[in-house]
């Protein structure tokens, strides 16, 4: 279980390789990469977070995924600071013996991350206009379907 909050970019291929390295029991690796969507004239997305709580919240979400599914390994990376359209912003990877646990846990991690981890996005357009992104009801609904 690993959580990283960082300004720097990351290499999804290298991350996946090291996630599965050294554990011959792993039969499935699933990953999700989120990119900054350049909708309309959005040129940059600035990510603010709550240092300290962010890491705790991500670690709690990851621990819950390991409770619910038999995972061999997992990784969550979230970038912060100003990110241009097209840049990688978030990465979730799960490894398990069989594919279903890895698929479901990856989706669970993203759904919970989007509704529970203290990050806030601000869109900046080419002419410098700034606007905070509103939370989406569809994200809450996506997280609620994991309720048990």
């Amino acid at each position: 279980m690993t959580v990283r909050v960082q300004e720097a970019d990351f290499d999804p291929g290298a991350e996946l390789e090291s996630l599965a390295a050294g554990d011959k029991e792993i039969g499935a690796v699933v990953s999700f990469t989120g990119l900054v969507r350049g909708t309309g004239d959005v040129s940059t997305m600035t990510l603010e977070h709550y240092p300290g709580m962010t890491e705790k919240a991500l670690e709690a979400i990851e621990a819950e995924a390991h409770e619910r599914w038999p995972l061999q390994a997992s990784l969550v990376i979230h970038r912060v600071g100003p990110l241009p359209a097209g840049a990688r912003i978030v990465f979730v990877a799960t490894a398990s013996r069989h594919r279903r646990a890895a698929f479901e846990a990856a989706e669970f991690l993203m759904d919970f991350l989007k509704t529970r981890a203290p990050f806030w996005k601000k869109e900046v357009t080419a002419d410098g206009t700034e606007e905070w992104v509103d939370a989406r009801e569809t994200d809450n609904a996506a997280a609620e379907r994991w309720a048990r």
């Binding site: 989120g34 990510l47 977070h49 709550y50 709580m53 979230h78 912003i89 978030v90 993203m110 991350l113 989007k114 509704t115 529970r116 981890a117 203290p118 990050f119 806030w120 996005k121 905070w132 992104v133 509103d134 939370a135 989406r136 994200d139």
Partner: peptide, 10 residues
């Protein structure tokens, strides 16, 4: 105490 709008990460 931290006060903030609904989160929008991911």
């Amino acid at each position: 105490v931290a006060l903030f709008p609904p989160v929008t990460g991911g």
